[in-house]
Design a binder for these strands. Structure first.
Length: 577
RNA sequence: CGGGGCGUAGCUCAGUCUGGUAGAGCGCACGGUUCGGGACCGUGAGGCCGGUGGUUCAAGUCCACUCGCCCCGACCA
C-alpha cells in the first residue's frame, strides 16, 4: 500500500482528552478517532492491527475445535427476560425500542442468543459437545468509559461458548481453550500471565484471566516466583500469616476505655497507644443488598471485598456512610469496635481471633478500648478468611513469597455450569433417555483491548513499538527526496520488489520533509524501516533499521529484499507459541 | 451517582475576573527559498465562542437552565 492512497493522518500535538499511553498514541498516530464517550472510529491502521489479531484468534479457535458464527448485535428483550438478566443487568445494558415500541438491547455479551440457538437444535447427547465462537462489536454502557480502547463502551470481542453433557467434557474444552489463549497471546509477541480469577456474578466453578503485563495495568496480580501459582488479587489466597507480636500492655479482666482524641486511623491510634497496628482490631461496617454487617480484621491487614461479597452471597457491597455508622454503632467513623456492638451481624477474620489481646474502637467519640480479648469480650457470628493477600505473603502452594505485578485483563475463561441452561431450559436427552441440563463454558477475549494492551506494554517516548504480529504494516519504506526523479523511481522499484516478495509493506511516498516522515515512522511504530534517499543511493545502498533499537544497517540495494526477509524471519523466530 | 474541571478555527489553546471590531501556534491553500529527524519568508481561506432563555444601548465575557466532554471516586463478564 502506498501512503498516498490510504488514510493515515497523525497529530502533531497530544489529544487533550487522552490520559493513558495507549489512548494517546492510538489517537496521535492516527489509529482511532473519538466519536462519543467510549465510542471510536477504527481508522485504517487500527483496522489492519485488529484484522491481524483476529486472524490469529481465528486460527487458534479453529485449532481448539471452535466454529465461527455471527450473532445479532441487537437482541430482543424476551431472551434476556428468559435468562433473568433483563432485570439483573442494570443500566450497563443499553436498552432500545423499535418503531413498534418493542424492547431490545444492544448485546453486551451473547449467552442468551447462543443458548437460544443451541436449545432449539441440540436435543441429544450424540450432538454434544458444541463449540462456537464469534468476533463482534459489543456494547456495555459503562458508568465511566475511559482510557480509550482499554475501557470503551463499544468494543470488539471474541467470545466462545461451549455446551457439554457433563463436567468432565466441559473440562476438556476448558483446557483446550486455555491452551488456545496461551497460544494467541504468545503468538502476538506479548508478555502475559494466566491467573486464577474470581467468577464474579456469573457464578460457575472455575475461571482464569489472561493478563498482559504492564505497569499501567488496572488489575493487581499476585504470583509466586517459585511455583506456577498466580491469581488476581481479588481471588488470591495466601499461606499462613505471621503472628502479631506479643501484646505489650497488661490484660485487665474487662477492657479498659482510653481517651483517644481525634485518633481515627490505624496509624494514628497505634502510635498514640504505643502499640503495633497488628494489635488493633479494625472494624468496618458494610452495607449489603438489604442489611448491614460488621467485619473485623487485624489492623495491619485489608479486607478483600470480593471474598466478603462471596461469603455473604450478596450482589452489592459498599462501606456504610458516616451517618449509618453513627446509627449502628453509636460512635463516629474511626471509633467502631466489636465490644458491646449489638443488632448487627458480626464477621471476623481468623487473624483477629488469634490475637491474645487487642485494642479496638469504643463506639463513641474520641474513645478506644484496650485489653480486648477475642471470645471473651466479643464473639463473632462467623469466622471467615477475609483478608486481602499482598506482596510478601507466603505462597499458598509452596514456600515462596508472593510478588505483585500489574496487568491488563485481555482474556477471561469461565466454567459457567448450568446457570444459563437452567434459566433457559437448554436440555438434552442422555443415553438413558433422561432429560438433562447442558453444562456450559464461556471464553472471552477482548480484541480491541488487546491492541491497547500491546501498546501499553510496548512503547517509548517517540511512539508505539509494535510487536511484529500486530503491526498494521510490518515494513515502512520511506522515500526521501520526493523531488528527485531517480530517487522516486528507485524507491518505487524497491516497493514493487517487496510487494512481489509477499512482504507486508507500506510505501511512504508522500512529498513530506524527512523529519516529518521519520517522526511518523517512529510514532506509528512499524517494526522494520527502510529509508531510500539520494545520499545512500549514490553508493547503491539503502538504510534498514528496526523500530526497537533504531540501529541503522546499510544494505546494498540489490540485496534489500533478502535482507528484509532475513530481519523479518529473525523477528518471527523470537516469537514461539 | 458524589467531587473537581473544560466546551472559542480541523487540532492545541489564549481572551471571560473588569461587557464595547474574535485571537495565537500548528494544520490547510497559493508563491518563493529550503530538503536525512516535526524548515523558513510572504499572502490567504477558515468561527452561530456547545445550546436555550434572561440582564444590558451592547454578551465569548454577567445570570439561569440545559447538553456534551475530561479527571478522581464508587462500579466493572
Amino acid at each position: 500500500m502506498r501512503w498516498s492512497q490510504t488514510f493515515i493522518y497523525t497529530l502533531r500535538q497530544d489529544p487533550s482528552d487522552a490520559e493513558v499511553i495507549s489512548h494517546r498514541l492510538l489517537v496521535r498516530a492516527g489509529f482511532i478517532a473519538k466519536v462519543a464517550a467510549g465510542i471510536y472510529n477504527y481508522l485504517p491502521l487500527a483496522t489492519r492491527s485488529l484484522a491481524k489479531l483476529s486472524a490469529i484468534v481465528r486460527e487458534e479457535m479453529a485449532a481448539a475445535g471452535s466454529a465461527e458464527l455471527v450473532m445479532p448485535a441487537v437482541q430482543p428483550a424476551e431472551l434476556w427476560q428468559d435468562s433473568g438478566r433483563w432485570a439483573e443487568y442494570g443500566p450497563e445494558l443499553l436498552r432500545i425500542k423499535d418503531r413498534h415500541d418493542r424492547e431490545f438491547c444492544f448485546g453486551p455479551t451473547h449467552e442468551e442468543i447462543i443458548t437460544d440457538i443451541v436449545r432449539g437444535t441440540v436435543t441429544s447427547y450424540r450432538q454434544l459437545p458444541v463449540n462456537l465462537f464469534q468476533i463482534q462489536t459489543k456494547f456495555r454502557d459503562e458508568i465511566r468509559p475511559r482510557f480509550g480502547l482499554m475501557r470503551g463502551r463499544e468494543f470488539v470481542m471474541k467470545d466462545a461458548y461451549t455446551f457439554h453433557a457433563d463436567d468432565g467434557d466441559l473440562d476438556v474444552a476448558y483446557r483446550a481453550m486455555e491452551r488456545a489463549y496461551r497460544r494467541v497471546f504468545s503468538r502476538c509477541g506479548l508478555r502475559y500471565t494466566q491467573v486464577e480469577a474470581d467468577t464474579g456474578n456469573i457464578g460457575g466453578s472455575e475461571s482464569h484471566e489472561f493478563m498482559v503485563l504492564a505497569e499501567t495495568g488496572e488489575d493487581a496480580i499476585l504470583s509466586c516466583p517459585e511455583c506456577h501459582y498466580g491469581a488476581n488479587v481479588e481471588k488470591a489466597e495466601a499461606g499462613a500469616l505471621e503472628a502479631a507480636p506479643p501484646w505489650p500492655l497488661d490484660t485487665p479482666d474487662t477492657p479498659r476505655e482510653v481517651d483517644t482524641p481525634d485518633q481515627r486511623t490505624i496509624e494514628e491510634v497505634s502510635e498514640f497507644l504505643g502499640i503495633s497496628p497488628a494489635h488493633l482490631v479494625k472494624t468496618l461496617i458494610f452495607e449489603t443488598d438489604e442489611s448491614f454487617v460488621a467485619v473485623l480484621i487485624r489492623g495491619d491487614l485489608e479486607v478483600n471485598e470480593i471474598k466478603l461479597k462471596n461469603a455473604l452471597g450478596c450482589l452489592h457491597l459498599q462501606l456504610a456512610s458516616e451517618q449509618k455508622i453513627l446509627e449502628i454503632t453509636g460512635g463516629p467513623q474511626g471509633f467502631s469496635g466489636p465490644v458491646g456492638l449489638a443488632g448487627i451481624r458480626l464477621l471476623a477474620d481468623p487473624s483477629v481471633m488469634a490475637l491474645e489481646a487487642a485494642a479496638t474502637g469504643g463506639n463513641k467519640d474520641h474513645t478506644h478500648v484496650v485489653g480486648v480479648v477475642p471470645n471473651r469480650d466479643f464473639t463473632p457470628d462467623e469466622v471467615i478468611e477475609l483478608r486481602l493477600a499482598r506482596a510478601g505473603d507466603p505462597c499458598p502452594r509452596c514456600a515462596g513469597a508472593l510478588v505483585e505485578k500489574r496487568g491488563i485483563e485481555v482474556g477471561h475463561v469461565f466454567k459457567l455450569g448450568t446457570k444459563y441452561s437452567k434459566a433457559m431450559r437448554c436440555t438434552f436427552l442422555d443415553a438413558d433417555g433422561e432429560e438433562r441440563l447442558m453444562t456450559m463454558g464461556c471464553y472471552g477475549l477482548g480484541v480491541s483491548r488487546t491492541i491497547a494492551a500491546a501498546i501499553e506494554q510496548n512503547h517509548d517516548d517517540k511512539g508505539i513499538i509494535w510487536p511484529l504480529p500486530l503491526a498494521p504494516y510490518e515494513v515502512d519504506l520511506v522515500l526521501l527526496n520526493s523531488d528527485k526523479e531517480e530517487v522516486v523511481e528507485a524507491a518505487a522499484k524497491l516497493y514493487e520488489e517487496l510487494v512481489d516478495a509477499g512482504i507486508d509493506v507500506l510505501f511512504d511516498d508522500r512529498p513530506e520533509r524527512p523529519g516529518v516522515k521519520f517522526n511518523d515512522m517512529d510514532l506509528i511504530g512499524f517494526p522494520v524501516r527502510i529509508v531510500v534517499g539520494k545520499r545512500g543511493l549514490e553508493s547503491g545502498e539503502v538504510e534498514l533499521s528496526l523500530r526497537r533499537d533504531g540501529e541503522r544497517r546499510s544494505t546494498p540495494i540489490d540485496q534489500l529484499v533478502p535482507a528484509v526477509q532475513g530481519l523479518l524471519d529473525e523477528l518471527k523466530g523470537e516469537i514461539a507459541p
